[in-house]
């Protein structure tokens, strides 16, 4: 009996392990290998070429800037929304459902939706023109208007992906027994103090998950940027795409992919360290 039960768990997880190995692990190793291979075996030539490229530092700068602006705003917004939604007595499910609609839209479609709003002949310009605020079409998304392009991309990203943070935080809020907040209230804590001293610390594990997920995805940002700005706003994943498809240089594309992975891993490690909850502080 024991000899039979010992292999059953392994047999049961084998299909998913094999699946992940075949479609995840193998390409990962291949990509890393590809990024380090030159004409004569192992070399850093792909990385040198990546770093020497005109768009490289711009892509790094843009990706980090976008992440640093978008993620904190998303977390702050999601915290406010989650707090409000969890206070609802009626219609909480409907509100949550509406707030999470953007999650069901692919990022390219989301980018195209914002493009139809913001392009020269888009809804925004039509509305502003109809109101007499602008004399004719204004370009919001061109190379000459980098800040409005950046703002548009940031806004589209915030609109598209805040809901995933919201969902994680709402789940986390529901895990906190309401007695903690009630006890704090009885003992004299104002709403803001309760949020800061009770809710936020107890929400830390959920905040950590949400931050890791959102930051990793923010470093991979591509489709929304591509739809709104094309290469006017270079980002890391966009450069990988360009090197892969337009330049047909798989080595440099792989180097970009490995760089994105390294940044994501570093961010994850940072969050795990900074936002760790000591076991004795868990509820």
């Amino acid at each position: 009996m024991s000899s039979r039960t010992s292999w059953i768990p392994y047999a049961l997880i084998a299909p998913s392990v094999l699946f992940l190995a075949a479609f995840f692990l193998v390409p990962l190793v291949q990509t890393v290998w590809l990024s380090f291979s030159g004409d004569e075996g192992l070399s850093l030539v792909n990385y040198q070429r990546m770093a020497g490229d005109l768009n490289f530092s711009l892509a790094i700068q843009n990706t980090f800037l976008l992440t640093l602006v978008v993620v904190p705003i998303q977390v702050a917004l999601a915290l406010v929304m989650a707090t409000m939604v969890s206070k609802l007595e009626k219609g909480r499910d409907i509100a949550l459902w509406i707030l999470t609609i953007p999650l069901g839209i692919s990022d390219l479609a989301a980018g195209l939706a914002w493009l139809s709003l913001l392009q020269n002949t888009g809804y925004l310009n039509s509305a502003l023109y109809a109101l007499g605020i602008i004399p004719g079409p204004v370009g919001w998304l061109s190379q000459e208007t980098p800040w409005s392009l950046f703002a548009a991309i940031a806004m589209a990203e915030i609109w598209r992906a805040t809901a995933i943070v919201l969902v994680i935080l709402i789940a986390g809020l529901q895990l906190i027994p309401k007695e903690f907040s009630e006890a704090a209230e009885i003992f004299g804590a104002q709403p803001w103090t309760r949020f800061r001293r009770i809710t936020l610390p107890l929400l830390k594990p959920s905040l950590q998950s949400a931050l890791i997920l959102r930051t990793v995805l923010a470093f991979e940002v591509f489709a929304v940027v591509y739809a709104l700005g094309g290469r006017n706003f270079p980002v890391l994943a966009g450069e990988a795409y360009t090197w892969q498809n337009e330049n047909q240089n798989y080595g440099v594309a792989a180097a970009y992919a490995v760089l994105i992975m390294a940044i994501s891993l570093a961010a994850t490690a940072l969050y795990l360290r900074v936002l760790r909850t000591r076991p004795e502080q868990l509820p």
Partner: peptide, 17 residues
Amino acid sequence: RKRGLAMVFQNYAVFPH
């Protein structure tokens, strides 16, 4: 908080953090 009272809860509600 303005009623000048204290309370002990059934499941303690002692702050874990």
